[in-house]
Simulated assay, not measured.
Amino acid sequence: KSSLANEYDRLEMVELAIKDYPNLRASNIEFTLPKPSYTIDTLIHLNEKFPEHDFALIMGSDNLDGISKWKNADILMRDYQFYVYPRPGYSQEENYDNVEIVEAPLMEISSTFIRNAIKDGKNIKPMLPPKVWEYLDGSNLYG
């Protein structure tokens, strides 16, 4: 947790990254929910506030491997669609009806990798959307 930027900086980077994708929306809903923040609580809140929408989770297969340890994992797996990005070294099998492994190239990149690379002074510009790179380059978030 100490290696993460504050929630407002992270939200800004998400908004910059999805700016050109009209079907995606960033949300600050977790800013108002009790801490610690649990995915199931966020989804229940979103469903209550926006019942006309369906919500899904997007995650790497590394997170899917540990989903059984999440709060109310059984409800998450029963009630929500998962879109899973393949990660090297993790299962790429669809073990659940509502899990779709997206067809994407296997890349050894993660948010932790990006944060560590910035900290180590490596060039990560090619790995980020240009606006996110500009935001990070003009800050000292992970340096």
Rank of each mutant, 00 (worst) to 15 (best):
S110W: 01
P105H: 10
K71M: 05
Q81R: 15
D62L: 12
G66W: 04
L11E: 06
E134D: 14
L106C: 07
S111N: 04
K49S: 13
A73K: 08
N63V: 09
E48P: 05
N95Q: 15
K19L: 12
E15H: 05
H45M: 12
Y38H: 14
R10Y: 05
K1S: 15
L64K: 00
S61M: 03
E52R: 12
K69T: 14
I118R: 07
S37N: 15
R25E: 14
W133D: 02
L4R: 13
V99Y: 04
M127Y: 15
P86S: 11
S27Q: 06
Q92H: 14
K125N: 03
S91Y: 07
L141T: 01
P126K: 01
K19P: 05
D62P: 08
P88D: 08
A56W: 09
F82S: 04
I44F: 07
T32A: 15
S2A: 14
P88V: 15
L128Y: 01
E134M: 03
N123D: 13
D120R: 10
L76E: 11
K125W: 00
D54E: 14
L16Y: 05
L76N: 07
A5M: 14
Y135G: 00
K122M: 05
K119Y: 14
T42S: 08
Y21H: 11
E108M: 10
G60L: 05
R87K: 15
L24R: 02
K69Y: 09
K19W: 04
K122E: 11
K122C: 02
Y83T: 13
